[in-house]
């Protein structure tokens, strides 16, 4: 138990140190994220009459923040796996009886740092566009609960991708497509109630839609599609199921690589 504590401390220390050492990349990533988001958001805003910008801005902003949780988990955890494998670091960690999983999960530190910084800056842009602060929320605790549930899901999903990339090459585009689908159809961008009737069952089947409903309730007080209590239960079940799946799949992957060796196949 004691040893696991030291391991976790080591992993956290490693990722903060790397974050500092790659500071230019870090700043570049924040800037790149903000710019891409602004391009798409400006495009989307062209569909809305200026009089409605104030009303839509917080929903759009929080949708984007939630999407950032998803895409940064995918890219900072899943995408980094190739580097981790190709540099022989999987073997080096296994030799110290350390599973690659916590090291990969630790990349969430980098991903969340970029997400946080980029979100704050995008919030400033939105505040300018909407003419009022978009970061004032209705219930911060509920927002936090929703984001924790979402982060659990996205990190688990990223780990599933990471596990897959030990065995197969995963093209980055496929991940982007999945992310975009989750954004629009998965209820991250808009409340499920605002989606066309036919698409709602799809959104309900996508796990992220549920914490997104919780977050929106916390931000604007919008009643979640299935009610707050139900959404909390469903989100918890989805989060646990995804985390458990990631654990099982990674265990199997570790067995697989012991049988077949570690090969850097999963470039994303």
């Amino acid at each position: 138990m004691m040893r696991n504590d030291i391991r976790i401390r080591a992993i956290i220390w490693l990722h903060f140190l790397r974050l500092w050492r790659y500071k230019f990349s870090f700043l570049n990533n924040i800037l790149t994220t903000i710019l891409w988001l602004t391009i798409f958001v400006l495009g989307a805003l062209m569909f809305i009459p200026s009089s409605k910008w104030g009303e839509m801005a917080p929903i759009a902003l929080w949708g984007i923040i939630m999407w950032q949780f998803l895409s940064s988990s995918v890219w900072y955890i899943g995408g980094w796996t190739w580097f981790f494998i190709s540099q022989g670091l999987v073997e080096e960690h296994l030799l110290t009886n350390t599973s690659p999983v916590p090291v990969l999960v630790g990349r969430a530190i980098t991903g969340l740092s970029v997400t946080l910084a980029a979100s704050l800056l995008v919030a400033l842009v939105f505040t300018g566009l909407a003419g009022a602060s978009v970061l004032i929320v209705y219930n911060p605790l509920i927002v936090l609960v929703g984001l924790v549930l979402l982060a659990t899901m996205t990190i688990s999903y990223a780990l599933l991708l990471s596990a897959a990339s030990f065995r197969i090459g995963i093209p980055g585009t496929i991940l982007d497509i999945a992310n975009f689908i989750s954004f629009v159809l998965g209820g991250l961008a808009v409340p499920i109630a605002n989606l066309p009737e036919q698409i709602r069952p799809i959104a309900l089947a996508i796990p992220y839609a549920h914490p997104a409903e919780i977050v929106r309730y916390g931000v604007r007080g919008l009643e979640p599609y299935l009610g707050l209590a139900n959404e909390l239960i469903i989100s918890t079940i989805f989060a646990l199921a995804l985390a458990l799946s990631a654990r099982i799949v990674f265990k199997r992957t570790m067995k697989y690589i012991r049988k077949h060796g570690v090969k850097a196949v999963g470039r994303m």
């Binding site: 490693l14 140190l17 022989g88 670091l89 073997e91 080096e92």
Partner: peptide, 21 residues
Amino acid sequence: KGFFWKLTGRENLKYFGMLRG
């Protein structure tokens, strides 16, 4: 290979030492 590029030799050793408890 098998080390982190942007860590010093000492830092890399410290990290792997910590993983070993």
